[in-house]
Design a protein around this nucleic acid. Structure first.
Length: 810
DNA sequence: TCATACCCCATTTTT
DNA sequence: TGGGGTATGA
């Protein structure tokens, strides 16, 4: 037809050219779904659909950004609305705030905000938390909101004990939120869905305006989202949804698989298109994925196929324990980089839980392999940043009680828990926001004279800040930091923490403000900034521009792809997780999780499990996951670990050779985990299923890891060191990713080089002498006496910013 | 009011 | 093993 449909397969073109009427696109992994969606938008525009009639809803900012970028290539500069569900609702709610009892400048509570609000509500409701933890209550309320259950109707429903408790907290929580002119994440959907339900004229208006609605990842919608989409597609049922039931992994957050399974019932005239051809993976990988997912019952049958050429078999590999797994994988990555023309960015390591990335981190760091962990400590979650943000929130919305509580004694001004509690009771009794209560401190008899003075001075500080609310963001933040003497506060309170730099974070925050001003010269309001910040997430910051190995959970991996993938700890109780094993539906979700992981891989995949795994301190025997037995062996190589190593392993696991520190190797990285590395490197590159060589004595020695590292092309090794602090945040709000390897540059002195008596230099404390060394590996700790002021400090060598001046051991 | 010590508890977490 | 919340003393 034209350029837009030219390069599409028949199935894809079928979906792209269906403009009017409901459309269901069942899109298997790697089937070019985004391509279809973006081309469809371009096609519609070509057909004369006006851009503002289209809204494309996604779940993540990342997905929305990608879509926007690609649509822009096909149809430049068209004001099609593309963004997340939550942002969409947030924007609509600004217009219709009064309909649901909010003011237009309402605040969006993030997770920790809602948590504190929840605690306060639990207290105010006077329920006991002995039968239901605050988390359980919060989750029950969240689920209720996702299912559009009002506080009133929740009370009528009889349920479990925790639900009964939650039902009592819910109305209180909700009332407090409204009083604070705030919403939590669930409310964005909940309020908007109710708004549509209860105001037919608003519903009709939006239905008419947004004639073409598209929803991505439809399998992950919950009832509230379903209701929203449904309500806007009554008069103009041109709703196009894409999704894959087999990739639904957010059931625990309220996603309802029935939304997609029943779509054809909801919209009788639906056109259904199946995208089953996979353009991503090798047939081997796809076969493994396909066999696995066939074990699920609640799904829409799908024939996955690919025309890609055959690839290597999928490897299923056993390790003795988690440390061996980590080391072997790091070695394997190093080896593949040398032999397989691979770069760090080609690799991803997936796991079920964040806790499992730790040993991998060590192993990668030791080899100088650059890596990034998606979901590290998030910029906007850091204390300093949250403090400043809380001030901004309070300036924008004086009713923001959570912000007030955070800020009223930060920096400390002797307004402690007692005073705060009294303010709170007064506010509760008068049903006023806490800032208002603070203004009326004089009326609160229980407050001491001193407290009243302190509170008054805080209020006057607030009023001064508030005057700057309409200034540029940069000016406001500068003024804020200045007026609150925040930097001085940080300097005085920061205890030596090696891995964070609060003052730097303040600078970065300022840069983010400057950047926001620059990007939004006209409409850059404080409110817009806060909304922006509230609705960006941690995983959005995954950057593929970094040439690094990526570590992440299976959940975070959805929607991504990598040439080479390791899936670790495929063990019983981990995957499937023991808390999901009782229930069939949950078990199927766990299987989908593995399916998602497998289908991320383009050309190479290894699944692994260990015989033993140490978890939270103790070592447990691990059993391979039941899912592994469901995989077809024809497309796999199964490699077992050497059984005869058990004795040896145990002897070293707990009994670290004392002589370790003394081993004089050219720069040995001294990590307990290292002991396997050389042997594993041999086995896994060449001898797939080959002879099992028992480890020789030499192999057991802490052989230099540098021989793995030294063969890695310089260019990779240099990366983390060459740019120790790449633009971490200033460039864009969405780029707040922090990688551990940025903080731990790889060119540091090997830990073994430090001796008692060595002279070192610390950026803050100056020169000093090591007086004592304890611990090993990442816990290797040095006690250092500093010469200038005779102070003695202890540091973890792996983290401290130490410089070795003189290694000699007098 | 604030700092420290201990005690408890641990999936996943698009927004 | 480690983070976060609470009890305790200065």
């Amino acid at each position: 037809m034209d350029a837009i449909t030219q390069n599409l397969t028949p199935a894809q073109a079928d979906a792209v050219t269906h403009v009017d009427g409901p459309l269901l696109i069942i899109a298997g992994p790697g089937s070019g779904k985004t391509r279809v969606v973006t081309h469809r938008i371009a096609y519609m525009l070509n057909q004369g659909v006006r851009p503002w009639q289209i809204a494309a809803l996604t779940f993540t900012n990342k997905a929305a950004d990608e879509m926007r970028m690609r649509v822009n290539l096909l149809a430049p500069n068209q004001p099609v609305w593309m963004g997340t569900f939550h942002r969409f609702c947030a924007q609509q709610l600004r217009r219709y705030a009064s309909f649901v009892g909010l003011a237009e400048n309402y605040s969006i509570y993030d997770m920790s905000d809602s948590r504190s609000a929840m605690k306060r509500a639990i207290q105010a409701a006077g329920v006991s938390t002995s039968h239901a933890t605050p988390e359980q209550i919060a989750s029950a309320i969240s689920k209720a909101k996702n299912r559009l259950i009002t506080p009133e109707s929740m009370q009528q429903q009889s349920g479990r004990a925790s639900d009964t408790v939650a039902a009592r907290v819910y109305p209180v929580y909700q009332e407090q939120l409204l009083l604070a002119n705030a919403v939590d994440f669930d409310d964005l959907l909940y309020h908007f869905a109710r708004l549509l339900r209860e105001n037919p004229e608003v519903r009709g208006e939006l239905d008419a305006k947004l004639k073409y609605i598209m929803v991505d990842e439809y399998q992950d919608t919950n009832l509230a989202q379903y209701a929203i989409v449904r309500a806007m597609s009554v008069d103009h049922p041109n709703l196009a949804v894409t999704g894959d039931p087999d990739q639904s992994i957010y059931g625990w957050r309220g996603a309802d698989l029935n939304n997609i399974l029943d779509f054809e019932k909801d919209y009788p005239n639906v056109k259904t298109v199946r995208l089953e051809q996979n353009y991503r993976s090798t047939p081997n990988i796809l076969a493994v994925a396909d066999q696995l997912i066939r074990h699920n019952r609640r799904r829409k049958a799908k024939e996955l196929y690919t025309e890609n050429p055959d690839g290597e078999n999928v490897i299923l590999r056993q390790y003795q324990d988690g440390y061996e797994e980590a080391d072997a994988i790091a070695d394997e990555i190093a080896a593949q980089m040398i032999t397989g023309n691979a770069e760090p960015r080609d690799f991803a390591i997936f796991c079920r839980m964040n806790a499992l990335t730790r040993s991998l981190e060590h192993a990668l760091r030791n080899r100088g392999l650059p890596y990034q962990i998606v979901n590290g400590v998030e910029f906007y979650q850091r204390k300093e940043v949250k403090d400043l943000l809380a001030y901004l929130h309070l300036i924008n919305n004086p009713s923001h009680d959570v912000a007030l509580q955070r800020v009223i004694n930060t920096p400390t001004r002797s307004i402690g828990a007692t005073t705060l509690g009294r303010l709170q009771s007064f506010a509760d009794a008068e049903r006023i926001p806490m800032l208002e209560a603070a203004r009326r401190a004089d009326e609160i008899d229980t407050l001491s004279k001193r407290s009243k003075t302190m509170v008054r001075s805080f209020v006057s500080l607030y009023d001064r800040l508030r005057k700057k609310a309409t200034a540029s963001l940069e000016e406001l933040v500068r003024y804020l930091v200045e007026e609150t003497k925040y930097i001085a506060f940080l300097e005085r309170t920061t205890v030596e923490k090696e891995d964070s730099n609060p003052i730097e974070n303040v600078d970065e925050f300022l840069s983010a403000a400057v950047e926001f001003d620059r990007m939004n010269p006209e409409d850059g309001s404080l409110e817009a900034f806060l909304e922006q910040v509230a609705l960006v997430s941690d995983t959005d910051k995954f950057e593929d521009s970094n040439n690094r190995v990526t570590l992440m959970t299976l959940h975070a991996a959805k929607g991504l792809e990598f040439p080479r993938v390791f899936l670790i700890a495929v063990e019983d109780d981990l995957l499937p997780h023991y808390r999901s094993k009782q229930d069939d539906q949950q078990l199927e979700e766990e299987r989908r999780l593995l399916f998602v992981g497998i289908t991320r891989a383009k050309q190479w995949l290894q699944l692994s499990y260990a015989k033993r795994r140490s978890m939270r301190g103790d070592i447990r025997v691990a059993i391979p996951s039941m899912f592994l037995s469901e995989l077809p062996r024809a497309d796999m190589n199964v490699i077992e670990s050497h059984a005869d190593r058990d004795f040896f392993d145990e002897s070293v696991d707990d009994d670290y050779p004392e002589s370790w520190d003394l081993v004089q190797e050219p720069a040995p990285e001294e990590e307990a985990e290292q002991e396997y590395s050389s042997e594993t490197a041999v086995t896994n590159t060449s001898s797939i299923g080959g002879p099992k060589t028992p480890p020789s004595t030499v192999d057991r020695l802490p052989k230099t890891t540098s021989d793995a590292a030294s063969v890695i092309p310089e260019v990779y090794l240099d990366e983390p060191a060459a740019k120790p602090k790449p633009k971490r945040n200033s460039a864009a709000l969405a780029s707040a990713l922090t990688t551990a390897s940025e903080m731990l540059s790889s060119d540091r002195v090997p830990l073994g080089a430090y001796r008692e008596g060595s002279t070192v230099r610390h950026p803050e404390y100056g020169e000093g002498t090591i007086t004592e060394l304890t611990g090993r590996g990442p816990k290797r700790t040095a006690k250092i006496r500093f010469s200038d002021n005779e102070s003695e400090q202890t540091f973890r060598l792996a983290f401290a910013k130490l410089e070795l001046v003189d290694a000699s051991n007098p």
